[in-house]
């Protein structure tokens, strides 16, 4: 369920975050601190604070929707220690990068902030000025303003952190359901095919979904490879199908269900329809209760002798 925005706590968290980042940068624990600052249009953008003074520019508000973990890959070179701020889902993304061994934990200092729900920046920005103020300063946000992922979030508290700012929020288990997948499964194969064909035709292959995804963190992406040429360079539904198949299958079992791919899609393709199918299948076939939470060994990187057999299965 969407959690209730708590503007007062968020304000305190922002102050505490700036103070903590300033402390870390001053005493040399980290040489750079990764957080958000306010962008030109009021939306938070990623920001590497490199001096104690710059720590004052960090923000923490209900709009810090995108996860920062992937920006760590820009800091792979060198030995410097990096500070980073995460909320619940941000920590899942960070955990994904850590479990994939893409960034050494020793080079990280993680500041965690329990999350009381995040708003969809696009939707908030589209509101009239007065209403936006009421939402951001009064915390009066309707349920439709929350990010989709808040609806199924079962990790409001960071799972990885060195310092926690504020008190953990009540963390009740949320049953993972995939209503859209169930809906699609009830359709005939022909209807489904036409449905997905429409999505492929819409895709302009801007790769935003791949670039934002914390699970898409390979050193070299097979979509960029020339040899073998997995995906043809021509545009068309057929190649887009291959693109979306590769993207979804490569994050199968590693997707953290943050829904960022869907949020950043420039043509509004509901990408979670593809990702959720894998999450649903993996939980049903292999009995993984929380398939979106990073595990030491991903579900498709292991096996069990009692896995269902598919010989001749129709």
């Amino acid at each position: 369920m969407p959690r209730k925005l708590d503007v007062k706590t968020l304000g305190q968290a922002q102050g505490a975050l700036r103070a903590e980042a300033r402390r870390l940068l001053t005493d040399g624990t980290v040489s750079v601190f990764l957080g958000h600052e306010e962008g030109w249009d009021g939306l938070p953008v990623a920001f590497f604070a490199a001096t104690p003074e710059e720590a004052g520019r960090l923000v923490w508000n209900p709009l810090v929707a995108f996860n920062l973990a992937k920006y760590l890959l820009d800091r792979l070179a060198g030995e410097e220690k990096v500070g980073i701020v995460v909320n619940g889902c941000g920590s899942l993304a960070l955990d994904r990068i850590l479990k994939d061994h893409r960034f050494p934990r020793e080079r990280l200092y993680v500041v965690g902030i329990p999350c009381t729900g995040l708003l969809d920046p696009e939707k908030v920005l589209a509101l009239p000025d007065e209403e936006r103020e009421r939402v951001l300063e009064g915390g009066e946000a309707g349920e439709d303003l929350y990010l989709k992922r808040c609806g199924w979030c079962d990790a409001p508290n960071p799972v990885v952190y060195d310092t926690l700012i504020g008190d953990p929020v009540p963390d009740e288990p949320v049953a993972q359901e995939y209503p859209r997948v169930v809906e699609l499964e009830a359709m005939t194969p022909e209807e489904r095919f036409e449905h997905f064909k429409g999505l492929y035709e819409k895709c302009i292959r801007c790769f935003a979904c791949r670039n934002v995804c914390p699970a898409c963190n390979c050193r070299e992406c097979s979509l960029d490879q020339w040899e073998p040429l997995w995906m043809g360079r021509s545009t068309g539904a057929s190649e887009q199908l291959m693109y979306h198949f590769i993207r979804a299958f490569d994050v199968a079992g590693r997707c953290i269900r943050c829904g960022e791919c869907e949020r950043v899609c420039s043509v509004g393709i509901p990408l979670m329809e593809l990702n959720d199918k894998f999450l649903k299948d993996i939980s049903e076939l292999f009995g993984v209760k929380r398939p979106h939470v990073p595990a030491d060994i991903e579900p498709l990187g292991q096996f069990a002798l009692e896995d269902p057999d598919l010989e001749g299965a129709v």
Partner: peptide, 15 residues
């Protein structure tokens, strides 16, 4: 087996 099990279900899903 695991991978193809998931794949088979996915192919069906794609129509």
């Amino acid at each position: 087996r695991r991978r193809l099990l998931v794949l088979k279900s996915y192919l069906e899903y794609l129509g």
